[in-house]
Simulated scan of single mutants.
Amino acid sequence: MSQDDPKTLVSTGWLAQHLKDPDLRILDASWYLPDAGRDPRAEYDAAHIPGARFFDMDDISDQRSDLPHMAPPVEKFMSRLRAMGVGDGHQVVVYDGAGLFSAARVWWLFRLMGQDNIAVLDGGLPKWQAEGREVEDMPPVVRDRHMTVRRQNSLVKDVTQVSAASKLQDTEIIDARSAARFRGDAPEPREGLRAGHIPGSKNVHYASLLNDDGTMKDPDALRRVFEDAGVDLSKPAITTCGSGVTAAILSLAMERMGKTDHALYDGSWSEWGMFPGLPIETGPVATGDT
């Protein structure tokens, strides 16, 4: 697979070359954990890639749920994107201010909604700015555009499905959190959650899939990371993390590798760790501590 694939990942050079394309739409999907002390909307207002719209992941979510930024209802997704001027026939490129972090979640969300003409900007805004490329502080001119949505339910799993996969061991459950959180040695950033991991799951910390400059490793290197963590890539996969954000980095990596039988556990540890009736494992495991 080439570096530039408008359905998964594109380089800063590719985006610069296509920046003036009439059917290109760029989304700034920056989002940070509360302890990062960063305001993504304020950063967007100060400087963004020319023409970028701000995608508010917490707003474009299912706010009926007590869990953070769960996938929104189809109607809400359609209306929000239409108001942003993003719709049918557009090639979308999504980036974030961390390099490659929350943008993957929005890539997965578009895929969930049946939109596959979307790619993540490899290295994100930090790489774009490090290369001295143009940014602006002006809001884009937006014209409504209809979007046809066909939700792909196979790309998302709920707690019941994940519990069944954990018991049957017929699917690899892959956790993107740090090894310390996976083992239960470090406290969860969200109050009230137990520490540990879903029984039988494997640990692939999302950062292990990235190069030092925040870009994603090549497909062969990605495959080695998963295999070194004890993941059987011949099985279907479910990705999980703290709240369904970095799990999408694992999903994007598998898609880059050509593995398409993967889904994301949207509730992730925010849900599993909350309910005392769900089993957990702690401590080191034979494989998977990356």
Results as ranks from 00 to 15, higher is better:
142 V>P: 14
68 P>T: 11
12 T>S: 15
168 L>Q: 14
14 W>G: 01
136 E>Q: 13
6 P>A: 11
143 R>L: 14
191 E>I: 13
125 L>E: 04
165 A>F: 07
149 V>A: 04
240 T>L: 03
137 D>S: 12
238 I>N: 00
198 I>K: 10
84 M>P: 12
124 G>I: 02
122 D>C: 12
29 A>C: 12
237 A>W: 05
121 L>A: 02
93 V>L: 02
115 Q>P: 01
289 D>N: 10
6 P>G: 02
55 F>M: 00
236 P>G: 10
99 G>Q: 05
32 Y>H: 15
139 P>Y: 10
103 A>I: 05
236 P>N: 12
233 L>D: 13
201 S>R: 06
14 W>A: 07
162 V>R: 00
252 L>R: 01
110 F>A: 00
13 G>F: 13
78 M>P: 04
189 P>V: 03
217 K>Q: 10
12 T>W: 01
47 A>K: 10
111 R>Q: 04
173 I>T: 02
42 A>T: 04
249 I>M: 10
8 T>H: 15
24 L>G: 01
184 G>C: 12
39 D>T: 13
210 L>E: 02
236 P>T: 08
98 A>V: 04
129 Q>E: 13
186 A>L: 10
49 I>W: 01
271 E>C: 04
17 Q>L: 09
8 T>P: 13
214 G>M: 15
206 Y>G: 08
226 F>Q: 06
23 D>R: 09
6 P>F: 05
66 D>F: 06
198 I>G: 05
21 D>M: 09
224 R>N: 07
24 L>N: 03
164 A>M: 08
55 F>T: 00
